[in-house]
Nucleic acid binder design. Structure first.
Lengths: 321, 321
DNA sequence: TAATCATTTTGTCCTAGACAATGTGTTGAC
DNA sequence: GTCAACACATTGTCTAGGACAAAATGATTA
């Protein structure tokens, strides 16, 4: 990571720091009060001005928090101790197939765009779409997230990686026109959750299962989700939550939506973000793993009188029993 | 728009209202104090609970504000007067080629996904990529935005439209591999600006001009933009701002970035969001229209000794004079 | 070992005042 | 009549410290 001395930078206002770090203004102020960090200067008007070095440290702290450390502990540490935590490997998190993913990670680290793109298409041709998503893409996204949280790569590398994945998914899915399949599934996220890759993975997996996905993209307000679900006559709404989305907000948003959504339409929620939700929510199906998606699908199909269709069977138009 | 009576909804907490309306908690509280609206109930703990009807009204007010009306005026109006404003056509904003776009708008309004997708590809084949973007896509996006601000369509229709556009752009651009062209251009947005379509339009226009675009996707923190620009050795950073992004924040962000970006790398900013920026910013090229992009490109090329290359000329690898 | 309770931690919400940045309207000069 | 400069009104954001509930941690018991 680059740590360059910046000339003539008196400091960033609190709104810029919120934008850069993702920490709310309230949190920044209360940390200052409780832990004595950060220690911003003040401008002529008494407003906070954060030194760039402190902003950098705040982003580092935020990253470590996403990894599970708690602020009270982190804010008491000095630079050296923080850097040491970056190195520490969380043995539990380490995904399987590590060996195999190392080659991919090398391409990500060196931002070798062309090679990455080529490799994606080759591997997909080799494994087929479903296996490619489940066995390569999903673990790889996890791995990239871990690498970022360990400060081995930056946001830049993560963004570039995501862009290539997205480009690949979209060009592949463009030619697999939505069939007349069942159930019909609305794919979107709540306002504030901007990650699209989860939705694209679900779309890819569901298309080959004869499901008819309607991709709405990220950040739909709940009343518009309700309207979309009714107009497009979907059987279920499927939301995706990344680990960055606060579990409190996820749960609150799911409750809000369940309240307004007609009872006949199911509500499925997936992604790393739902792992942190402890209490089950009435009328909401939480799917922390992709397996849950298949479970929900199978359950819906048996309840609605469809023969279970395996992914490996050539799919004819599904008909009610 | 659907206005259904919701059962058992005591009200939404302020964080949900912020998520749904895009109005900050500070703003919601100060409106209540100053204008006497909204008038949330309180829960046992004294915290605000907003009635769903009021939330709906707040989103309507926000929409009208994006159209230029001021809060002080809007908050004094009753339901009927607000609805009347929705109808009022802003004659000035009306785009040219209205006649031609009507057919497209009909497809958007009826959420006819298949027809829309087909029509995109046909028209692109007919006009060529550059003309398609400049003469169809850009005005159509404006038109859709206006229709939304006039409450003729909802977020749902707008999202669906955007998704189809994005799918089309990405599958088309996937096969136009980045050349070795010059200048090298980094495409991204600041944190908080999630609109990707502007970036994709720029990528499409630049690819056919022999520029080598590096698409980073939306929401990159400024220090990572700096790092990406250096690692990918780009000649300029190009940011996109939608009209939803506050002009104050745009200007602040551009100043922040210009401060940290090496002087040798140019900074270009485009999109509707920069129209509202009054004062020019030192070392930043503001391009409210697409023409500005071509101007910046031509200027860079003459300054760096490249022959100007027209879009209509078959492009050979550009070489310094 | 697993489940229940008590305790700390931590983010968000509260009030109400202040100010700067922007928008609007008015005056005056040409 | 048109345009610049001014004064005034509007509006979002920032400040302060207190309060509380949800979540995480540690202690106790079955």
């Amino acid at each position: 990571m680059i740590t360059e001395a910046m000339p003539f930078v008196p400091g960033l206002p609190i709104s810029s720091v919120e934008r850069e770090t993702g920490l709310s203004k309230d949190t920044l102020r209360v940390w200052e009060r409780r832990y004595g960090f950060p220690t911003p200067e003040r401008d002529a008007n008494g407003e906070r001005l954060y030194a760039p070095m402190q902003v950098q440290r705040l982003t580092q702290i935020k990253r470590l928090m996403d990894r599970g450390y708690r602020p009270g502990k982190l804010l008491a540490l000095d630079d050296a101790a923080l850097a040491a935590l970056d190195e520490a490997r969380p043995g539990v998190l380490a995904s399987p197939n590590v060996q195999h993913l190392d080659n991919w990670m090398h391409l990500v680290e060196t931002h070798d765009s062309e090679a990455l793109q080529r490799q994606f298409y080759r591997e997909m041709g080799k494994l087929g779409l479903a296996s490619f998503v489940l066995d390569i893409v999903a673990p790889l996204i996890t791995r990239v997230g871990e690498a970022w949280s360990r400060n081995e790569i930056g946001i830049f590398e993560e963004h570039l990686f995501s862009q290539h994945l997205e480009k690949m998914f979209r060009s592949v899915l463009a030619n697999m026109s939505p069939q007349q399949g069942s159930p019909r599934l609305l794919l979107t996220t709540l306002s504030g959750e901007e990650h699209t890759l989860g939705l694209l993975m679900v779309e890819a997996l569901m298309v080959v299962e004869d499901v008819c996905p309607v991709l709405l993209g990220p950040q739909t307000p709940i009343d518009e989700i309700v309207r979309a679900a009714q107009l497009k006559q979907v059987d279920a709404v499927c939301l995706s939550f990344s680990s960055a989305y606060s579990p409190t907000l996820s749960a609150q948003g799911l409750r809000d939506l369940r309240q307004m959504l007609p009872a006949g339409i199911e509500l499925w929620a997936g992604g790393y973000g739902v792992k942190a939700i402890r209490k089950p929510i009435d009328g909401v199906c939480l799917m922390p793993e992709f397996q849950g998606l298949y479970d929900c699908l199978a359950k819906w199909r048996t309840q609605h009188g469809y023969e279970p269709v395996s992914a490996s069977v050539i799919s004819l138009p599904a008909t009610p029993k």
